[in-house]
């Protein structure tokens, strides 16, 4: 491990591993490696396991000896645990987003506040890819890192009652996609035609560690993709 970590018992069934408190890709990759390792090593012992930016939470199946589990984690991490994550495992996904003001009139509000031209905004928002750190807040809501500072905007003091599902939005130093209708304090800036949920499953293939790049599409392309029952990610990647 390249970072100092602490093991913190939370309750008789929950323990956490804490990395230094900052948002950083090397920390994310270490968390993912430890998570994968424990997933294999503790088969049948883990009830659920998920993480934030620098904390990995491990909820054990009830009735285990917490002290034993803690000493096992210490042993694993002391043995000079090698994250051994191959960066090529992570993919960059292109997510089609329509920024047309006819579809997303609310974008005007953001552009006004920021005094940015529509074209410049679209270019800046689609220029770089964003790292997916984890899902939280709502089912399928991505915590994405790497929003350019010029695009930051304080969250709305009074959250909107309903941000529609599929909205691409910016709040504070973050950008993301509302996977379902939800109250929220972020500014709507675009809309993706790709449904995040369907047939009772999360339909998007993005995993923590992957990168997401927004790709600007026209309103007619948006409507075309919206009609599709099944979005083929591979075809999209190939044809753009």
């Amino acid at each position: 491990m390249n970072h100092p970590v602490q093991i913190i018992p939370i309750s008789p069934d929950i323990l956490e591993i804490h990395w230094p408190e900052k948002i950083s890709e090397p920390i994310l990759f270490e968390i993912l490696a430890v998570k994968r390792f424990l997933h294999e090593k503790w088969t049948g012992k883990i009830h659920r396991m998920y993480h934030g930016y620098q904390v990995l939470g491990i909820v054990l199946i009830e009735g285990q000896d917490l002290a034993t589990r803690i000493s096992e984690v210490y042993a694993i991490l002391k043995e000079n645990f090698q994250p051994g994550y191959n960066p090529s495992e992570f993919r960059t996904w292109k997510l089609p987003v329509c920024y047309d003001l006819k579809l997303v009139p609310a974008l005007e509000r953001y552009l006004d506040k920021k005094s940015i031209e529509w074209g410049d905004f679209v270019e800046m928002h689609t220029e770089n890819s964003y790292r997916l750190y984890f899902y939280g807040f709502l089912p399928g809501f991505m915590y994405l890192g790497g929003l350019e500072e010029r695009l930051h905007i304080p969250r709305k003091a009074i959250p909107d009652r309903k941000i529609p599902g599929g909205s691409v939005a910016i709040g504070g130093s973050q950008t993301g996609v509302y996977p379902m209708d939800s109250p929220g304090g972020w500014y709507e800036v675009g809309k993706t035609p790709i449904p995040f949920f369907g047939q009772g499953e999360l339909r998007v293939p993005f995993r923590p560690g992957d990168a997401i790049q927004f790709e600007s599409i026209s309103l007619s392309r948006f409507n075309q993709l919206k009609q599709k029952e099944n979005f083929s990610w591979t075809k999209w990647e190939e044809n753009g």
Partner: peptide, 11 residues
């Protein structure tokens, strides 16, 4: 839904 926590799904 413990198997879906990592996708942001409440328990």
């Amino acid at each position: 839904r413990p198997a879906y926590s990592a996708l942001g799904v409440p328990l």
